[in-house]
Simulated scan of single mutants.
Amino acid sequence: MPTENRSSNTEMVSTPFQREDRYIVIKRSDLDKLHPSYKGNFLLELNCISAQMPSRECLVIESDWPEYKPAWAAIEARVTGKPAPQPHPEPIAWMVGTAFWWTKEEAERDAAATGLPIVGLGPMPTRQDEPAWFMTEGGVSAMHAKAKAMSDQQGLDTSSYCVPLYTHADAGEVERLQGLLEAYMNAEAEKGIELVKLRTERKRMDEALVACSNERDELRKANTELEDQVSSDFKVIDDLRAQQAERGALLREALEFIDDGVGRSDAEWRLIKKLRAALSPDGAASATDEPYQGIPGTSFQRLNALANQGE
């Protein structure tokens, strides 16, 4: 741990200030992160060593604390004899956006509600830039610089607002804001990387969606063609059924013409049985079919002809 190059006196020296590494400091929270076996052995050895060392009281200031740089500046001023830089005076008021607050607590509540940073205001005679606000001598009231300028243009009396107030930020606040800015920039960079990833993923999904849409159109086209084919097949079936009905009617008419119960030849009888089987619902001959019992070689037309001839 570095410290000053003078140990205990306040003697003024002209040598350049140089930080020295004099102390070994271990933070307890860092020890808690060690493996239990390492931590146990280390603490045992440390206790043994501490028992043989003189006891000292030290103030440890970490480098990320706002007191770190002022402390080093004070030590350097004591060692070198140079005056330490004086910190800015404490603000007497605070501004959040364009809102003016007399107490820091009110400003902090406003900043928490609005998400805007707090800017301290105070009298700084050495400042050459334009003040942000003007305050009365007694600090009873304050007026924004823009409002004062407008009032002056309108001829209103603003002479009581004679104490200029400037924006004020100490070194710790600047470092804090710089840290916030760096964190914000890192976050924005990560968001940019994530945005590129999201755009790439969206492009991939868009391409997949186009492919799905094309496949859907192809399926719709194939389905339409299939429906047309099915409709055409059903029309063919209907036509075949109509033709079958016409042929059935023709067969029934022929069967009624020749199947009159009068004697038939064997060939005619076989034809009659085939017609009956074809017209039967199950495609087989009727159960009442039996061998022909009529007069062989005769027919209804022949008997009619014989009757007409007087035979």
Rank of each mutant, 00 (worst) to 15 (best):
M1R: 11
P2H: 12
P2W: 09
R6V: 09
S8H: 15
S8F: 13
E11P: 00
V13S: 13
S14V: 09
T15P: 00
T15N: 08
P16S: 08
P16R: 09
F17M: 03
V25G: 11
V25I: 13
V25D: 06
K27T: 02
D30N: 13
D32G: 05
L34E: 02
G40N: 07
L43S: 05
L44Y: 05
E45N: 07
E45T: 07
S50D: 04
P54G: 07
S55K: 07
C58R: 11
V60Y: 15
D64Y: 13
W65A: 15
E67W: 06
K69R: 14
A74R: 10
T80N: 08
P85M: 04
Q86I: 13
H88C: 04
E90I: 08
P91L: 04
I92M: 06
A93Y: 00
V96E: 01
V96M: 03
G97P: 04
T98Q: 11
F100E: 00
K104A: 03
A107T: 05
E108R: 03
R109A: 01
D110G: 01
D110K: 02
A111S: 15
A112W: 00
L116I: 00
I118K: 03
T126M: 06
D129S: 14
M135F: 04
G138R: 08
G138M: 03
V140H: 05
V140T: 05
A145L: 10
A145H: 12
A145S: 11
M150P: 00
Q154C: 05
L156Y: 15
D157N: 15
S159H: 03
S160Q: 08
L165V: 01
Y166V: 10
Y166E: 03
T167K: 14
H168S: 14
D170M: 09
D170K: 07
G172V: 03
G172Q: 06
L177C: 02
G179S: 14
G179M: 11
E182Y: 10
E182V: 11
M185A: 13
M185H: 11
A187C: 07
A187F: 01
E188A: 14
G192L: 11
K197F: 04
T200A: 14
E201S: 09
R202D: 06
M205I: 02
D206E: 15
D206H: 03
E207V: 01
L209P: 00
C212K: 10
C212P: 00
S213G: 08
E215K: 11
D217T: 13
L219V: 04
R220L: 12
N223V: 02
E225M: 07
Q229L: 12
Q229P: 00
K235G: 02
D238Q: 11
L240D: 15
Q244F: 06
E246A: 15
R247H: 08
G248D: 13
L250C: 05
L251I: 02
E253V: 00
E253D: 14
I258S: 07
D259L: 06
G261L: 09
E268D: 14
I272V: 14
K273I: 14
K273E: 00
K274N: 10
A277G: 07
A277N: 06
A278H: 10
L279C: 04
P281Q: 04
G283C: 06
D289F: 05
Q293G: 02
G294C: 05
I295K: 04
P296I: 00
G297H: 08
S299Y: 12
S299H: 06
R302H: 14
N304T: 15
A307D: 11
N308I: 10
E311N: 08
